[in-house]
Amino acid sequence: MIIFNYFMIAVIVILALYISLIKNHINALLAYGMFGAALSAVFFILNAPDVAIVEITVGAAFIFFIYLIAIKKVGKVRVYYVLTPYMVEKRENKIMGFEYALLNHFIEAKGLEVEYVEVSEEESFQKLEKSGDILIGGHTKINDNEILESEEFLPTKIFMVGKPNKTSYGYFEEDLEAKYKLDEFNDNFIIDLIRYKYLLYLGKTFNNNKVEELKTTGYKILFNSNNDFLKEEFNDFIEEFKNDKDKYEELIRRYIG
């Protein structure tokens, strides 16, 4: 019996090291169940059957269930996206783009389930507040106190072409009207870098107007006003992601160039 006891104690030590070193959650949980059973056996051998009963129910069953429910996928997040060049694009029924890829990294890291829904520019904010969790699509400045903004995930610049009387989607000024159709942008507007690049790609030239750099800012992801927790998680994630230089720059190179 003494030998069996020493064997069990060795098992406990090995399992404890295994639990603390393993990365996979489910494996750690299974090992914790075995740990509880082994500890219960040790208690039983050491003449403490009362404690052994409690340990085998709490350690091997109850905590196992609780953790199993706790580490499961949290639930569905509804993401609305506004089609934006380079950020969220649709090609052959597949969504792609920088912001989409970045958000997918975040969703994967947090173990969330996600549902992407396309939304038009006109009703994006109402839909976000009504039934969505996240809104993506190259937002730089919004005039809405309710909606939460994340940290800047990509630096950008705002350009002023001519004497501005309108702005592009994503950059909202109180006294200027926002227009959504990029093809109609010919002169006198404020625009952000990504969309400006797209205009150049379309073959537009602004020789008659002076192109001026207005200010430096960054793109943000928008959250529903109830999703403060998700926003904090995303801010932590983006800080960590930016430190991983290779991955971040590779993502920029692939989608923006």
């Binding site: 009362d50 052994a52 009963i53 409690v54 129910t57 709490v58 269930f65």
Partner: peptide, 17 residues
């Protein structure tokens, strides 16, 4: 014998799951 209120409660609560 061995047992008691705490163990009984946990067993019943876990059985419900």
């Amino acid at each position: 014998g061995p047992g008691g209120g705490f163990a009984a409660g946990v067993i019943l609560g876990t059985g419900l799951i």
